[in-house]
Amino acid sequence: MAIKDYLRERFFPHLWCPGCGHGMVLNGLLRAIDKLGMSKNEIVMVSGIGCSSRITGYVDFHTLHTIHGRALAFATGVKMARPELNLIVPMGDGDALAIGGNHFIHAARRNIDITAIVMNNRIYGMTGGQFSPLSGENIRATTAPYLTIDPSFDVVELAKAAGATFVARTTTYHIQQVSDIIGKAILHEGFSVVEVLSQCPTYFGRKNKEGDAVDMVQHFKKNTTSIGSKAKQENPDLIERGIFVQTELPEYCSEYEKMVQRAMKGQ
């Protein structure tokens, strides 16, 4: 199937700004699904609110565009009712880890079979460039005219500690890795977290003098490296890309089904 068949072409051109990384994440995601040969009816995509969350409007799957920070809660409900479906939840960094932080850690703790994608542009794009828990220190934002003082979460470490059984990171520059990792995350049975560093040229780029979209994408090439590479040993500031965790542990819906069976037997 051509990947355009997964798009709701009637809503194109999409509303994301020129060069917004979120479109690249969508592109990589659809290629992963195409490669897996999945049909539209097997997939439910659930999102919250944000520029990133607009993604559900553009894909011809079952889609739910819900409320800010709560996409994982809605997705949990869908998955428990229809465990045979594949749940994909793309989120912005604010959506996933500011207002949605609690849902995020508990979905990870339960190891429910959902693929969470954090489209991390380190800023609130939709509401005009406020800083987020992933901005990190010394970042200029609408709400930080004198630079941020807050340290950032490390999505990978947080997801690991909370119990996610698949944890990976990549960037929009590394577009084939985006597809490859998202494909593996979808196949993984359990809670999968894929962080994709994504560019917001309109707010993050402009406020932080990171240049245009092209410069920002090239930054991702310069500032990242494969897990455990020699470059990382020489320059600890480089951000690692790849799959950090991939383990099999009991999945929440399967455990729930076992409990239902016990209850039916009255034990």
């Binding site: 990947i3 355009k4 798009l7 194109f12 051109p13 999409h14 994301w16 060069g19 917004c20 990384g21 979120h22 479109g23 690249m24 969508l26 592109n27 990589g28 290629r31 929009t172 577009i175 084939q176 597809s179 994408v217």
Partner: peptide, 10 residues
Amino acid sequence: RLCEFRCPDF
């Protein structure tokens, strides 16, 4: 196909 894969706008 890198142009096709990376285009944010298909």
